[in-house]
Every structure is written in C-alpha cells, then in structure tokens.
Amino acid sequence: MSHSVECIECGASLSLPDNVMQGEILPCSDCGAELEVISLNPLTVDLAPMEMEDWGE
C-alpha cells in the first residue's frame, strides 16, 4: 500500500504515517486543509467533514 497521497485541495504530495486509519483526519502540511482518509486500499482522501453550528437541546 502506498502511503503517499495527493491533497485534493492544493495538489501537494502528502506522506501519511504507516498506521494511518480509515476515518482519520489529517491536516495538509502545505495548505492546512483538513483531509479525511476515506479508504485505505486504494489510499484515498477527501475533504474532512465541514464544521457547522446549530442550536437545540
């Protein structure tokens, strides 16, 4: 499995740790965008979930 992946925000090449997990959220070291590992095989990242605010409860 490759541990290198391209940031989908800025295109930078990112080296991910050997023990990276599905669902893990990592910052791009170039642009700072938060990325979510959505698949380990093939290694795929997407933009991490957006953070929103809401009221209630």
Binding site: M52, D54, W55, G56
Partner: peptide, 10 residues
C-alpha cells in the same frame, strides 16, 4: 457526505 456540528445548547 458526513458533517460535524457544534451545538449552542446543552
């Protein structure tokens, strides 16, 4: 596509 939310309530 999942999202995160922070609530102003308790």
């Amino acid at each position: 596509r999942p999202g995160f939310v922070y609530k102003t309530g308790t």
